[in-house]
Simulated scan of single mutants.
Amino acid sequence: MSYAIIGFGNIGQALAKAFARKGVEVSVATTRDPESFASAAAAIGPTIIPKTLAEAVKADILFLAVRFESLPDVAKALPTWKGKTIIDVTNAYGVPPEELGGQPSSKFVAQAFTGARLVKGFNHLGAASLAQDPAVHGGRRVVFLASDDDAAADEIGALAENLGFAPIKLGGLSEGGLLVQARGKSWGQLIFKDLVKFD
């Protein structure tokens, strides 16, 4: 299984740190030349591999950690996203609901990435929290996952576990997914809730 993080701002780098802690190789890409962020990637760890967007989208599982308005550009990188699992880490804060056709932002994202299995996840934490070791006081930091594809949610749940997090599935994008989505100028009830699960 191959992994990529598209976007290498604060959230993209926080995700990269989670992979680096476990020694798992992950490609990182932006719309810029990989050399422009190679030193930042190297500072996180040897398993963080800078690539072009065209190379990175060959991965099986992709984290979308770009600004919401950049999604259409990323979606054009492949003619079809069939066979890919995409984790939507974006937040559509400030995007008017009518621009999304009144639907949850992840549904809008799913339509842009035709054929992909989409999971909303890893987006409810601020970058500073997400970047920290998920092992906290004998528990594990929670990440929420929502998807209309149960198998995809299970797959990303297993990845979250491997990275040291405690995944909690919220159900479909239109139900539980709304708890971790921004709508216009309001945040879902679980956004920014930094929770720890004790087994």
Rank of each mutant, 00 (worst) to 15 (best):
R21H: 04
K51S: 14
L71W: 01
L78F: 09
L125R: 02
A65K: 12
T85S: 06
F122Y: 15
L78W: 03
G184V: 00
L195I: 04
A128S: 09
K22F: 09
A14T: 02
T31C: 02
S36I: 05
V180K: 05
D33V: 02
K82D: 03
S70M: 01
G7M: 02
K84H: 12
R140M: 08
I86C: 01
L195M: 10
N162I: 08
L173G: 05
L195N: 06
R32H: 14
V89P: 10
K82L: 06
K17M: 11
K120T: 12
A131W: 09
L170Y: 14
A42C: 00
I168V: 15
G102Y: 14
A14D: 04
F63K: 06
E161L: 15
F19T: 00
W187S: 05
D33T: 02
Q111I: 00
K197F: 15
P50N: 13
R141T: 07
A29W: 03
G188R: 02
E98H: 04
F144N: 07
G12Q: 05
P46Q: 15
P34Y: 15
E55V: 12
H137G: 04
E25W: 12
G164F: 14
V142I: 15
T80Q: 12
A20Y: 11
T114W: 07
K22S: 00
G171F: 13
D133R: 11
H137V: 02
A18W: 10
F122K: 12
K17E: 04
G171D: 09
P134K: 13
A110Y: 13
L145C: 08
A43I: 03
G157L: 06
D194Q: 11
A153S: 12
K169L: 05
D199S: 13
L170K: 11
D148T: 07
P104E: 03
W81D: 01
Q132T: 08
Q189G: 07
A40I: 03
G12L: 04
G12T: 00
Q13L: 08
K107T: 10
F8N: 00
K17W: 09
